[in-house]
Design a protein around this nucleic acid. Structure first.
Lengths: 186, 186
DNA sequence: TTAAAACATGTAATTAATTACATGTTCGTT
DNA sequence: AACGAACATGTAATTAATTACATGTTTTAA
């Protein structure tokens, strides 16, 4: 009793919506999308090109995006994908839908701590220090990106969504670092 | 050039280690493990029983755990799994290993915000309110669990790992709620 | 000029994870 | 006595995601 006229793409598949959202910002190639998952989006969703290219085909087959072939230089072929009106509708519907589930998250390090039973175990402090360094350097990286990408209020207003996402990532890392510091012995 | 005498279980598979860690606390059944993924562990790792039972078989075949059949009441068969010394070694090795990667995380809601381009879009505030409620109630839930499970210092000392994990979850939710509140209009 | 990095696009194979299917027992409540 | 919730264990089917395979072009810096 699964399909009642539903499309082949599973309704829980969020990658498709994220791709639609990215293409709505401006037409892009699969390669560009893959870059976005490494950069601005990467803090909150990940996808490799091997997942992206097939999804672009599915979305195009479903009539939600279309592409135009362009050539760079002598013969390097690119496919610029654009949203169709059907795709835009689907995107709007997704954004408007409530998101009532807490996203499950995974943290291997925290679990390792969990399995160490006593507060005095000598392994704890080195582990905390390692994670502190890791998250501290990630925090620095994010902060530097914020400084270069959003040097003034105008830049923020022009890419508010991007600003929000980066701000959230910075806050999250910053708080993680503080939590670690709390259990670190000086 | 992939396998050079390596076991069939992929080395990145963390579920196996988590199961070893849980069994190290005390012998348990697959059902008990599934409960743990809904309760104390659930904030930082998830697994369904359909993933757990096959993994128990693989771990037993690899000689890292063993089981004892017990019967409850008239005929309800249970399998109590215990770590073998090989399993305990593997667990210790995992915990001791550095965890140098930032765990990728996914957040559908933050991405939806990202795709809304202007700060004045009327959809933003209702979305923020929905998430505020969601995370606020999750926070309450976690706080109540902390109160009941860890009413005093003695309880904390006796399950320090569990305390850490719950504390981290509470801090994370609490901070998420604060971040949302910052962008909420009163 | 040449080599490496970045650009660009795909498929195949494998592994992880979810959802659905499938069955039966025990305990607590009404 | 009957019913529902919780206990208990598995497999099958599907989907999502990663890793590996595979190929070629363009730009940039040494």
């Amino acid at each position: 009793m699964k399909s009642r006229g539903m499309p082949t793409i599973g309704q829980r598949n969020r990658l498709q919506y994220i791709i639609l959202g990215l293409l709505n910002q401006h037409p892009q190639t699969g390669y560009d999308l893959a870059k976005a998952f490494e950069n601005e989006i990467g803090e909150f969703w990940q996808a490799q090109h091997s997942q992206i290219y097939p999804m672009l085909k599915r979305l195009e087959a479903a009539g939600e995006i279309s592409h135009e072939d362009t050539v760079t230089g002598e013969k390097l072929a690119k496919k610029q994908y654009t949203l169709t009106s059907a795709g835009r509708e689907k995107l709007v519907a997704w954004v408007s839908q409530p998101s009532p589930e807490l996203t499950p998250s995974k943290d291997e390090f925290i679990l390792k701590l969990y399995f160490i039973k006593t507060a005095s175990d000598p392994r704890i402090q080195p582990m905390l220090r390692e994670q502190y360094q890791l998250h501290q350097s990630q925090l620095h990286h994010l902060q530097q990106r914020q400084e270069t990408v959003f040097p003034n209020q105008k830049a923020i207003d022009q890419a508010y969504g991007h600003y929000l996402i980066l701000d959230h990532a910075i806050e999250r890392e910053s708080h993680y670092v503080e939590w670690l510091a709390q259990y670190l012995e000086k």
